[in-house]
Design a protein around this nucleic acid. Structure first.
Lengths: 322, 322
DNA sequence: TTGTAAGCGTTATCAA
DNA sequence: TTGATAACGCTTACAA
């Protein structure tokens, strides 16, 4: 493998000239530039990132961390991030929770986008600084170098539940996501607020704390079935759990939506295929915006507010009129 | 941010001693080691990968390249890779086609797993060497430093199509994937071989060259519908296209499977939900094995053969008896 | 317009 | 058991 030295030698110039060519500096003769460039090609030369990063302290790599391999809509987010990162001629590296801290701290990237809730706020706060900004999705951290891109969960959830009330539903159950996550908190709050406004009673028995996985939705429904307390409608904090719940219901002889109605959140592919009423989150756009924010911060536009993204109710056949 | 120098200073030892501690060398006193380690913690010290990579030329990073954000089963592959990489205490970075060459060449990783068909063989051959092995999925490259992990597509496809013949199907259509991909070639060959064995005629009109995306399956079916030449069964080279085809059929008043039968390949989540007969590929295992092969090569076990993974037919309701 | 040389943070060699 | 020092490949003043 050839290095800058080989290129310099073969071109008959010094390594600094090669470096200047590679970095688009203007202090290089046109002919020299061309020769060097062609020699680079010929030798298949690629700059060693280690040397470059070590000296310059700069990097063109954006990190994206995600962790839940069950949630397939993450692919759309990645696509949005990827497109934006490419637009700005940065490089994207997607990493898992396990190596996240190491990658963030080892000076090989310019900033991170964090989606995985398992990465603690404290870690992010200790890593972020003016030279290393971070964008977090679906949570808020009060730090000048950490920006949030969040979904407005409250408004569409409120609309959806009010819609259910208007359709005549009276007995609700709520299958929740992880209780510390911002989006679950908002979704649940909207749900409760609507019931309260409409004077509908809701007890803790009608609440199940899941974890956004299909299995926990399955389990939740099973428990309602066993305790002989199946509601008119399951409001689920995401689609995966709604799907799990439907499986449990159908396995136990309940028809959806004839016997029990159900709603999800996210509008994943399967929710469409299974005709589940849900809330559509613009996934691609979410990724794109997060990346855009991060890169613009890196480039010096540090004074931006958190961003909130709109989501919309999608009515489907899982919630007929009562 | 603190470096090795800060740690050395605060511990009252030289930087070489700190380095020795960090790299688990034996030539360090027990008390020194403990003190250094605790100071590292205290200062929140993380080695600078650039410096380390530059000097040692080594890296613990495994690259995984994938590109098709439409195919959600990739998440399972990633999960398999991730688990294996973590088992061996390596780090995983997932990258896109766009930056793939740069990352492979910039000396910041120990090897790559390549899934994206858009990365050309020639590039891989020019990058791979004894110090930088590559594992490719779903294709074969004749190079001592590139190993293949492929699915045996032929056997299960043959079994599935023969099963359709046995069920009484006589008029087939084939919706193919990208024609240069190994898996599509094998799937199509198995299909044709079975028809030939059973003396069933198959003309080029019954063949549509798609690209594994849902849209191309949709388009394919639409074309068959328009040309008034809808077969008894669509054999699709993957599930996504089968799903697209089903949508086109249902939109045009054809019932699946009553009017038209259909099969897919991959066994993605949606195929299960939509009750499509397909071939199940062990996705997680595929990723895990690919990573295992790569890391063992990196560690010196260079003499291994290509690996072929078994896949199994899953009969569902989309293919009733004729 | 080009070249010389210092230095980024680490590891490895060798001497103490 | 430790420490001084050179070297990795690159960028960047600054000198020529």
């Amino acid at each position: 493998m050839s290095g800058i030295k080989d290129v310099a030698e073969k071109s008959g110039v010094s390594i600094s000239t090669v470096s200047n060519v590679l970095n688009g500096k203007k202090n290089v003769g046109e002919r020299t530039r061309e020769r060097v460039l062609s020699i680079c090609q010929e030798l298949n030369y690629y700059p060693n990132s280690a040397g470059r990063a070590l000296k310059s302290g700069k990097s063109n790599v954006i990190l994206f961390n995600f962790g839940d391999f069950d949630r397939s809509f993450y692919l759309k987010i990645i696509q949005g991030i990827s497109d934006c990162v490419n637009d700005y001629e940065y490089d994207l590296a997607i990493i898992t929770e396990k190596s996240c801290e190491k990658f963030m701290r080892n000076n090989m990237s310019a900033g991170s986008i964090i989606l995985d809730e398992k990465i603690p706020d404290t870690l992010l706060e200790s890593v972020a600084n003016i030279k290393y900004p971070i964008v977090v999705m679906d949570r808020k951290i009060d730090n000048p170098h950490i920006k949030s891109v969040i979904i407005d969960n409250y408004t569409p959830m409120k609309k959806m539940v009010q819609g259910l009330v208007d359709k005549g539903y009276k007995k609700f159950a709520f299958i929740a996501g992880p209780e510390h996550t911002l989006d679950n908190i908002e979704r649940y709050k909207a749900f409760k607020d609507v019931l309260e406004i409409n004077n509908i009673v809701f007890s803790q028995n009608d609440y199940y704390a899941g974890n956004y996985r299909e299995k926990s939705g399955y389990l939740a429904a099973k428990i309602f079935i066993i305790s002989q307390d199946v509601p008119e409608v399951f409001v689920c904090a995401n689609d995966n759990m709604a799907i799990g719940a439907i499986k449990a219901l159908e396995e136990n002889g309940y028809r959806v939506p004839e016997d029990v109605a159900i709603t999800g959140f996210d509008n994943i592919q399967l929710a469409e295929a299974m005709d589940i009423t849900t809330v559509d989150i613009p996934k691609y756009e979410r990724g794109f915006i997060a990346a855009k924010y991060l890169i613009e911060y890196i480039k010096g536009k540090t004074n931006v507010d958190d961003i909130s993204i709109e989501a919309k109710v999608v009515w489907r056949n899982s919630t007929p009129n009562k």
